[in-house]
Design a protein around this nucleic acid. Structure first.
Lengths: 142, 142
DNA sequence: CATACAATCTACAGTAACTGTAGGAGCAAG
DNA sequence: CTTGCTCCTACAGTTACTGTAGATTGTATG
């Protein structure tokens, strides 16, 4: 009588590249519904759960925060609504990523310049430390 | 008798663009030493504290994690050591940033492709949702 | 001087998205 | 029956702060 798609939490994890604790975490967050349990209390998942978890993982791997994943799931559950909302969420996330990239690029440039100027002498003459300290009168107050 | 460099926590915050709570947090983390207190228990900072906090903020703005900032501070306190260690920390951080940038770029590309393919119809035919769901048999199991 | 309001104090909870740990029970194999 | 793996719950830890509660102090004004 076992359905071939019946999965324990460990197998579901393997099937989706998700740690067991993470699956339980998603359940606690309401991303996955509470599955039925075996007679001894173990979680039993079906194929729909696997699909849903895969969706979550894919969304997360694209950087959507949990809240956005929750919204995307709700939207995808209602096939008849317009996907404008989906588009909006995705675009907002794209803008977010662009912002992060440009912040990191700015850091990268500064950091790179800092490193390039280092002549590997002593800390006293270190350009990196010097760059980090807005003015250098803290260490050697004259 | 007041030194002109004497600062209350609020003024120190203003002088360095740091919230008061954040300054106390840095103190708890051991990045700033415990300052002397006024008769009524308020923190009193001097110019060296301001320099040190500025260093911390600058390092943080370049993305160095607290632990790295702690190490950089320790190194900068000892002017005679070689700055090889400083260089190593900075290079490790640069590598870290590069990794983050390339992760975000990869996300960005996928996300952009996803969004471009969206025709703003219903969720049922939404390319975004479709892309997120590895195979589409969860919602409509036939 | 009294009163109001701003700044400060301590201590702790909350954020994001998990990860790790403790302590206990189920389950298959030898 | 014992070993060893998976699973269970519940809670603490991670990062770098931010926010809150409730009490006290400092300052400006009437």
């Amino acid at each position: 009588m076992d359905k071939k798609s019946d999965l324990g939490i460990g197998h579901l994890g393997q099937a989706t590249g998700t740690k067991v604790t993470t699956i339980r975490f998603y359940e606690a967050q309401g991303l996955l519904r509470e599955p039925r349990r075996s007679a001894t209390g173990r979680r039993q998942y079906g194929d729909a759960d696997r699909q849903r978890l895969a969706f979550i993982r894919r969304s997360r791997s694209l950087g959507f925060p949990i809240g956005a994943v929750r919204e995307l799931l709700a939207l995808s559950d209602d096939a008849s609504t317009s996907c404008t909302a989906v588009d909006t969420i995705a675009r907002a996330h794209l803008a977010d990523i662009d912002q992060k990239i440009s912040d990191l690029m700015a850091m990268r440039i500064e950091l790179d310049r800092m490193i390039s100027s280092c002549r590997l002498g002593t800390v006293a003459e270190c350009k990196i430390i010097e760059t980090l300290a807005p003015r250098g009168k803290a260490s050697t107050p004259a």
